[in-house]
Design a binder for these strands. Structure first.
Lengths: 339, 339
DNA sequence: CTGAAAGCGCTTACAG
DNA sequence: CTGAAAGCGCTTACAG
């Protein structure tokens, strides 16, 4: 029982395969009666074109690749939702994580070349990986859009969509300062991360502008996971002086910090204000509910997907390269006036 | 600048395209010197075969489809990690959510047929969707493996991998009963969900076996989201008598319940014990840390992927149909002796 | 508006 | 061990 092909359809409808093909791809170029006849046959024998043959012939796969840091975070899930809303029905999405064990072994890059994805949305661009991608883009044109992250110099050629991370961190820090906090620490991300570097600089700038010195280690680096938050908190609480506020580079880190605080009997926000970043779905559920900085995740996905489709389908249009989306400070219960 | 093809390689190496093809696919059937010569050319001109042509010719895509309820839950992320570990380098994964707006519009099923995915791992099987899938599997052979969920009668023909949800819920309920709780409620999932139905029955069985009546509405249905947990908790706390323990069908619901408890000034576990299900990554981070039932998520992914690959690659082998993985009660700080 | 024909880049019997 | 040739199922100039 082999699938019917357009040859079979043509035979049954008494037309040429060219006409059948046209009925599928450009029905307005076919006579009404012919179209009806062919469509009836297609329906009767439940024909659907072999997409493999179409892809091959057209040289197009209708697949895009989305690179995330880690599947399973709501931030990425929400961005993906936005991407999907834009590309749905036109492109399939293959998702990959940028963790070294996924990308380093080479099979991944091979697949990129091989599978002929038509474009890439990079929601994170760790260095060895992004370099490979850039090389790839040199040898064959590969539309790439950066989302979520600010663009490193290497990637400056590509369009991007993100918030002003520097300003957002500045605003959040300023908010804490206005609550009277002086001893504020920032739990940042990995040292090679461009996003958290921006946030770090925003934090530092706000501190400086408020006349608060940056004596001691006010910036702690973490891996942006809850565990990273836990480790950072343990390190912080082992110091001779305790900060009155900790600003975390994302919500997961903040949750880790709060869980340590709870275990040590520190009350949040009475003894310690904790601020997150991202406003993921769990932020409102923590106890106390987490104050944080909202990133418009779904919008980032939507805009990134739009830019990518434009780059794929109208490569000559000069698209605006960078788009900055608004952020917002979300005040909940984990931050309060300094006691 | 068009990509080189095997014709070009053959020309440069002075062999036939057949030989080039063999060098790629069955190198042991080629003479040593020829192989070396061809490989040198391939390397020199940086040739890589057109995968679109290969797929077309072979009639294989090397793509599998994974259907999840919602991207962005750690449960699914961990399962996916397991799947990926098994299929990596051999198959690409296309991920889709089973939410009605994604699956109902038909384009999704079309894509399923069209994209010629080679197999499906169903991590959730909501009814209208699974029915379509089953019909599809009738008209053309489509390997399907069910993971996470127990198998409904419709899907009984397919292999599956999951825990014994009935027993797991029974165990968790018994644990709460042994803590002295009598007024225990179960916040279940949607009424059409097979997984949570099993857990519901396990809960009821444990209550019965302990001689605790099932008077009143001891089972509340939710959508398995944190918001669902919030709504259920609000409903529960509006009742004339307050339970001393709430067992939730997943961790998200439990987090919702705990957040309401916190807002109402109810202390967990002193005033109310809360138990979750899944042991997702956030379970250990809640305040207090959540007692829950562990599902071996990564293992579920690994086993499901292994079963699928077997079904794809050795369709005649009679694979064991159902595999039950072990669960485990994880006791943390959200459950305590009844006061 | 319609059709005959070439061709996309591979793989795979078949023959030697 | 190697090659000539057919063919996978489409799309697309080209001609009428």
């Amino acid at each position: 029982m082999t699938n019917p092909t357009i040859v079979e359809v043509a035979r049954l409808a008494g037309v040429s395969i060219t006409t059948v093909s046209r009925c599928l791809n450009a029905p307005d170029k076919v006579g009404k009666k012919t179209l009806a006849k062919v469509r009836k046959v297609i329906h009767d024998i439940n024909f659907s074109p072999n997409v493999l043959a179409q892809s091959f012939r057209r040289g197009r796969t209708n697949i895009i690749l989305v690179v995330v840091h880690e599947i399973g975070s709501w931030l990425f899930a929400d961005i993906l939702e936005g991407i999907r809303a834009v590309v749905d029905g036109r492109y399939s999405i293959i998702l990959t994580e940028s963790r070294p064990d996924v990308t380093e072994n080479g099979t991944f890059i091979d697949m990129l070349v091989a599978r002929q994805v038509e474009g890439v949305i990079l929601l994170c661009s760790p260095l060895p990986f992004s370099r490979k991608l850039i090389e790839l883009a040199k040898s064959k044109p590969l539309p790439i859009v950066i989302g979520l992250e600010p663009v490193s110099d290497d990637l400056g050629q590509f369009p991007s969509v993100h918030i002003d991370n520097h300003q957002a961190a500045y605003d959040a820090t300023q908010y804490l300062i206005r609550l009277g906090h002086v001893e504020i620490l920032f739990v940042s991300g990995p040292k090679n991360s461009y996003v958290t570097k921006d946030r770090e600089l925003g934090f530092i700038a706000a501190m400086r502008d408020a006349g608060l010195g940056m004596d001691g280690d006010r910036v702690i680096h973490s891996d942006l996971s809850a565990n990273g938050g836990i480790n950072s908190a343990i390190e912080i609480l082992a110091r001779p002086t305790r900060p009155s506020a900790i600003f975390c580079a994302n919500d997961d880190v903040a949750m880790g910090v709060m869980s340590v605080a709870a275990k040590r009997g520190l009350r949040v926000p009475e003894d310690l204000s904790v601020m997150g970043f991202d406003d993921t779905r769990y932020a409102a559920l923590t106890n106390p509910a987490l104050s944080t900085v909202l990133q418009p995740a779904r919008d980032i996905g939507v805009k990134a997907a739009q830019k990518l489709l434009q780059a794929i389908e109208r490569p000559d249009d000069d698209a605006p390269r960078t788009e900055i989306l608004p952020h917002r400070i979300v005040v909940r219960d984990s931050t309060a006036l300094r006691r």
